[in-house]
Amino acid sequence: MEELRNKFPGAVEAIDTQFGETTVTLKKESLSRVCEYLKQEKGFDYLSDLTGLDLGKEAKPRFAVVYHLYSIKDCRWLRLKVLTDDAVDTVSFVWKAADWFEREVYDLLGVSFNHHPNMTRIYMPDDFNGYPLRKDYPLAGER
């Protein structure tokens, strides 16, 4: 993964390894280019998971979007992380699987994805207010 730093200078903020897993933290502007490269050149053809994380109201930036890529040929995972306060580019044109995962992150956390084909809620009713998975949203709902 060190070659990512060379290929995309300035895009990679950190590379960590823990519990046998590699996490690459990227700048959000470089996300689509890095994803395309990883899919075409490095064989990460399968998007296992795409999720969001609320780092807390005081954290700047507040949200992290986490991507788990998998290479079927090499049988290994790679985690990408992007930090943002409001929006990130979509990767649904790289992996179609990202479509519903990104809608879920938008629905539950409020992070929107630029150029997504259908950026609407998926779990909560369409007229729902609030983003349930945020840390400041009460568990039992706003009754």
Partner: peptide, 9 residues
Amino acid sequence: VPAGEVYFA
């Protein structure tokens, strides 16, 4: 549980 993140499938 020690701090960190893990993905297991």
